[in-house]
């Protein structure tokens, strides 16, 4: 229990930031029309692949002979990159379909 309370005390600024960020996240898409639900979900999904950054940092810090760490890190980066690259590309593809008819 003490550990929890002292943790909160030490990280109070961080907790504030967390709450603001959560609120920002909910506000930012509050008025999205139904038409954009699918593209928005897919775009947000691509952003959640941001763990790729963690993977890169991890592998950069892993000793070259730690094959287990390198292997799992490799998998992590690959998976997260599929999420990122595929997610943005597919969102772009969906949105381009809305755009092309505006021109015609």
């Amino acid at each position: 229990m003490d550990a929890i309370i002292s943790w909160i005390g030490e990280n109070i600024l961080f907790i504030y930031l967390l709450i603001f960020a959560i609120y920002l996240g909910t506000e930012i898409i509050g008025k999205v029309p139904v038409v954009l639900h699918t593209p928005l979900m897919s775009g947000a999904n691509a952003i959640s692949g941001v763990v790729v950054i963690g993977g890169i940092i991890l592998v950069r810090l892993t000793p070259s002979d730690d094959y287990f760490g390198l292997f799992i890190g490799f998998l992590g980066i690959t998976f997260a990159t599929i999420n990122v690259a595929g997610g943005f590309a597919v969102t772009q593809r969906m949105l381009s379909m809305f755009n092309k008819k505006k021109k015609s």
Binding site: I22, Y23, L24, G25, T26, I28, I29, M41, V50, I53
Partner: peptide, 15 residues
């Protein structure tokens, strides 16, 4: 990672 993740987490719940 932290704030990108929170943005997606929060907006995902709203969605």
């Amino acid at each position: 990672m932290l704030f990108g993740g929170i943005l997606v987490g929060a907006s995902g719940i709203i969605l």
